[in-house]
Each structure stands twice: as structure tokens, then as C-alpha cells.
Design a protein around this nucleic acid. Structure first.
Length: 300
DNA sequence: AAAAGTACCTGCGCGC
DNA sequence: TGCGCGCAGGTACTTT
């Protein structure tokens, strides 16, 4: 479940289930899901066993669970990752790569199952380093957040749901980019959390063509685009994210419903909800871009 | 240095 | 039915 709303849905679900839970055992079914953790499976297991989770934090599409002042279990879902919380007796889930066997404070055993079809996602135990701006590492409304972040996510910009997100500075930086606006919106170093779905939806709502040069857009238009993207992300979080198929679920295995609100992404050939013209898909940057050729004219 | 291209994976649906 | 191709929610690394 890969963009900010899906990762936030997972983060919130994890916070409900695993805060206070202790790691009893670890099963590595496919070590490729530890590819960002060079020490390997034995070290991963040794680091985690006996640790208790106190919070679940997210920045952009990265999430982490601190296990010490300077250490965290961190994860990224890539294109096809999921986390499911299951009872120990639940049937196996396909594509399960790593299982953390946890014990809740009540004594109830549960399983944290990391599932990932394409293995672009991964888990790791990583150092927490001070944030570059000295603020909290990320978003975690139900627990206090230290001013640290996993080293592997230190370069990720704050996302629009972060209390320290700075609209003005993001607009400034977008404005200076000599590249297509969609590339800039997808650049996690400028603004994090937005992927292909929410980029297309945000561009559609603000009537911007994906290939417009960022520097050709007015600051006012860029500000509108970022504000609209923030609304899109918030609405999608409220709907539990976007689920197209069996692959994208929350930690309880339930779908999100933002797919019903999509105006452009995946709507090729369907009428634009604004003007009625057909939505088009262009091949773009080794992926797709969905837009309304009538409402979203390329500037200059 | 910034921007653009490619590699990393599995599985599905499509046309032939 | 089988097979090759294009496609899928992302990131890090390499090249220009």
C-alpha cells in the first residue's frame, strides 16, 4: 500500500495493535526483504528479540518503530508491500516475507506479517539520527516523537500532514526546478508522500498538465497545487487509502475506498468529472500519466 | 550539480 | 493453451 495515505493507514493500524507489544521471535521467510539491511537475518533477529514498541512514526512513505533511543525497526512498502496483523492461529498469507511474533501487554500473541509481492519494499533495523531541522522526526499523533529519524530516511522532505511542513519553502523550491512539474511533485526530497496516484489527482484538481515546466508555473499556481495535494492526501487518509485489488489492504486486511473518488488516475477513456471529455493516459517516465487533455493544458 | 535514465522484482491481463 | 509483451502504488544508483 504505497503512497502516503496507504502508509498512514498502516501506521495508524500498527499504532493500535503493537504499541506496548514485545518481540518474542522473528521469522525471515525471504531474506530479500532485508536487502537494505546488510548485517543480515541473524543480526536482524538478534536486534529485535525482547524489544518493545513504544510508537509508530511516519514521514512520507517511510515508517519506523523506535526500539531504543537511537535505534528503530524501519520499513518501506515499495510498490506492493503490506503489513498485516494476524492472530497466531490465522492461516498463512501469500507473499509473506517476514513475520514478527509479538506478545501484547495482555499476554495475547499476535503476528506482524510483512508481505510484499515485488520485493521493492523492505524492513531494517536502523540508527536514528538527529533531524536536520531539529524538529520531530515525523508524524505520530498518538505518541510523542523524538527529534530523530532513520538514517535511510534523513533525506526525505517533510510531508503535507507533518505539523512542520512549510508550504512557502516548498513552493519556493518547486519554483526553482527546471523540470516537469510532475517530476518535481514526485521528488521525495522536495515534498514527500506523493506517488503516481496522488500526483495525477492533484494535477487534475489544479488543472495543471504533468509536463509543464515547474519554473513556468506562477508561485500562486504552485501554492494552489500543493494546497490541493494536501487536501487530496487528507481525503484519501479519511477513506483508508486507495485499493484497486486484493493487494492493498490495511493491517486488518480491509480495503480503502478512495478509489471511488479518483477523477484521473486509472480512469483512461472515462469522462472527466469536470468537463466530460475523455481522460487520457500517456506513457511518461517509465510509467503512466493520467489527465484530462481539455482541462489540463500544457503551459508554454 | 541537477536532471534523466535504468535496475531491482513478481504476477496479471492482453493479443497473437 | 501457451508465450511474449506491457503494465503495476517506488526508490536508489548510474549516467549525462
Amino acid at each position: 500500500m504505497p503512497e502516503l495515505p496507504e502508509v498512514e493507514t498502516v501506521r495508524a493500524g500498527l499504532a493500535q495493535h503493537v504499541i506496548g507489544a514485545r518481540v518474542e521471535d522473528v521469522e525471515i521467510l525471504d531474506s530479500r526483504s532485508l536487502k537494505r539491511y546488510p548485517p543480515g537475518p541473524a543480526a536482524f533477529t538478534a536486534e529485535l528479540i525482547g524489544k518493545t514498541f513504544q510508537s509508530v512514526v511516519r514521514r512520507g512513505k517511510f515508517f519506523w518503530l523506535p526500539i531504543a533511543d537511537d535505534l528503530a525497526l524501519s520499513g518501506h512498502l515499495g510498490m506492493s508491500g503490506q503489513v498485516l496483523i494476524r492472530s497466531a492461529a490465522a492461516p498463512a498469507d501469500g507473499q509473506t516475507r517476514i513475520v514478527l511474533h509479538l506478545k501484547k501487554p495482555s499476554g495475547e500473541p499476535i503476528e506482524f506479517r510483512f508481505i510484499d509481492q515485488r520485493i521493492f519494499g523492505s524492513l531494517a533495523v536502523v540508527d536514528l539520527v538527529p533531524t536536520s531541522d531539529g524538529g520531530p522526526g515525523g508524524y505520530s499523533p498518538e505518541a510523542s516523537v523524538s527529534n530523530t529519524i532513520p538514517a535511510e530516511a534523513a533525506h526525505i522532505a517533510r510531508d503535507p500532514l507533518d505539523p512542520m511542513f512549510n508550504l512557502k519553502s516548498v513552493v519556493e523550491r518547486l519554483s526553482s526546478k527546471n523540470t516537469e512539474i510532475k517530476r518535481a511533485v514526485l521528488d521525495q526530497n522536495l515534498i514527500s508522500g506523493i506517488g503516481n496516484i496522488y500526483a495525477d489527482e492533484s494535477l487534475w484538481r489544479s488543472r495543471v498538465h504533468y509536463a509543464t515546466r515547474a519554473s513556468d508555473l506562477s508561485k500562486r499556481k504552485l501554492r494552489e497545487l500543493v494546497e490541493v495535494a494536501t487536501e487530496v492526501l487528507q481525503e484519501a487518509v479519511e477513506q483508508g487509502g486507495t485499493s484497486f485489488d486484493e493487494q492493498y489492504k490495511n493491517v486488518n486486511g480491509e480495503s480503502g475506498y478512495f478509489v471511488q473518488e479518483l477523477a484521473a488516475y486509472g480512469q483512461t477513456g472515462k469522462p472527466c468529472p469536470r468537463c466530460g471529455g475523455p481522460i487520457r493516459r500517456d506513457s511518461w517516465a517509465n510509467r503512466g500519466s493520467h489527465f484530462c487533455p481539455r482541462c489540463q493544458r500544457k503551459k508554454s
